[in-house]
């Protein structure tokens, strides 16, 4: 999910687990209205896990393990189950066992954030929503976190919604992009199709990935490359192919002439 600050992204995702109640309209989860009478919001929140921006600011327990157990505890699970889930979740985000008894406040920034994400994963949600999970991290930390989230999505079949400002991340990880503008959905489509609207996105204060930009421009000036390239690898393959094709067609001409 992308959109400039104040476009309504954060407000929208807080509706998805019932933290905010819509003024009008309905939200269906698994085919059921979450506003129906008697619908358990607590259950919804365990199924639709929401990780806020800078989630490490919400850590509060004395140890990492206790903090991650907070969610399962609220679900009313036994202590053994709480612990089991916490350990699984910490494993999923790559926190080593030696850190389980450490105070969350002693960890590095990236570690803290992963513990905080584990705190939501420990509820074993089917949908994981993350509000700018990489904000403030350096490139290395960013890659690690996104890599782990992508792995969860593939291996645990978790549906992931993530809010970001980084188009390169969108291109690399997302199946679909939702572009928000002034509280409305501006686009909801595959990255390649959304990035084709370069000018409209610019008007919304959004960019396309650098590679998409250059490939669109090369396409416009007549190079036989496709304009819907969104990742670095695609761009590289395309450029190499056209130059190789060009070269071999000339080689053929030489052969014919001869």
């Amino acid at each position: 999910m992308i959109g400039h600050t104040g476009s309504g992204k954060s407000t929208l995702i807080q509706h998805l687990n019932g933290l905010l109640h819509a003024t009008a309209g309905d939200i269906l989860y698994d085919g059921e209205s979450i506003y129906a009478e008697g619908y358990s919001l607590r259950k919804l929140r365990s199924q639709v896990g929401l990780v806020f921006q800078y989630p490490e600011h919400q850590l509060f327990e004395a140890t990492v393990l206790d903090d991650v157990m907070f969610g399962p505890k609220n679900l009313g699970l036994s202590v053994e189950e709480q612990k089991e889930r916490a350990i699984t979740a910490l494993g999923q985000v790559g926190i080593e066992e030696s850190l389980f008894d450490a105070s969350p406040f002693e960890l590095s920034g990236g570690q803290k954030r992963r513990v905080a994400i584990a705190g939501v994963l420990a509820m074993q949600p089917k949908v994981l929503i993350l509000d700018e999970p990489t904000a403030g991290l350096d490139p290395q930390g960013k890659k690690e976190i996104l890599g782990e989230i992508a792995k969860l999505q593939k291996e645990q079949q978790i549906t992931v919604v993530f809010v970001t400002h980084c188009m390169e991340d969108v291109a690399e990880y997302a199946d679909l992009i939702l572009v928000m503008n002034h509280g409305k959905v501006a686009f909801y489509d595959t990255p390649a199709r959304v990035f084709a609207h370069k000018e409209e996105l610019k008007d919304l204060g959004l960019d396309v990935p650098q590679v998409t930009l250059v490939m669109q421009e090369l396409h416009e000036i007549g190079l036989p490359v496709s304009a819907d390239v969104i990742t670095l690898k695609q761009a590289k393959d395309q450029i190499l192919r056209v130059f190789a094709a060009n070269a071999s067609s000339r080689d053929e001409e030489v052969a014919c002439d001869a």
Binding site: V214, L218, L223, N246, R250, D251, V254
Partner: peptide, 19 residues
């Protein structure tokens, strides 16, 4: 973009060998 464009043009003008 400029570099690739240059390369593309010179590959078109070039003697017919793989650039």
């Amino acid at each position: 973009r400029e570099e690739i464009e240059k390369l593309w043009q010179s590959s078109a003008e070039m003697s017919p060998t793989s650039i």
